[in-house]
């Protein structure tokens, strides 16, 4: 399983990628939408973990753009914000996209990933 992590907090995605690596999951990270799209072009991914609020292209638009390039891609949203908009994003395609509120435990994230990949 190859995972793409996108969040404006570099320290977060960096550490998370390392932790996933320890658990045998290959993860790459980006801190903005453009960098993320660049990585998509270069490599293949099964799953993307996106923050809703990232500089430049926001998480929801980024998801659409990635979906166009890789229709098979699965998504998990991760946010520090709990407003209605975030929920709307989460419920846009219920059962396909997961919504997680920061801070997320690694076990919770892995559980969701596995659940999503099985579908």
């Amino acid at each position: 399983m190859r995972v793409l992590l996108v969040d404006d907090e570099q320290e977060l995605v960096e550490t998370l990628a390392e932790r996933l690596g320890i658990r045998g999951i290959e993860a790459r990270w980006a801190t903005n939408g453009d960098a993320a799209l660049e990585l998509i072009d270069q490599e293949d991914f099964n799953l993307a973990v996106l923050d809703v609020k990232i500089p430049g292209i926001n998480g929801i638009n980024l998801r659409k753009m990635i979906k166009e390039k890789c229709p098979q891609m699965k998504f998990i949203f991760m946010t520090g914000h709990g407003s209605q908009d975030d929920f709307a994003a989460g419920s846009a395609e219920t059962g396909v996209d997961y919504y997680l509120l920061k801070p997320v435990t690694i076990d919770e994230l892995l559980h969701k990933m596995n659940e999503l990949m099985k579908k």
């Binding site: 320290e11 977060l12 998370l16 932790r19 920061k102 801070p103």
Partner: peptide
């Protein structure tokens, strides 16, 4: 939440 997530990770 963001710094909390970093501490967590």
């Amino acid at each position: 939440n963001n710094p909390l997530a970093i501490i967590n990770e």
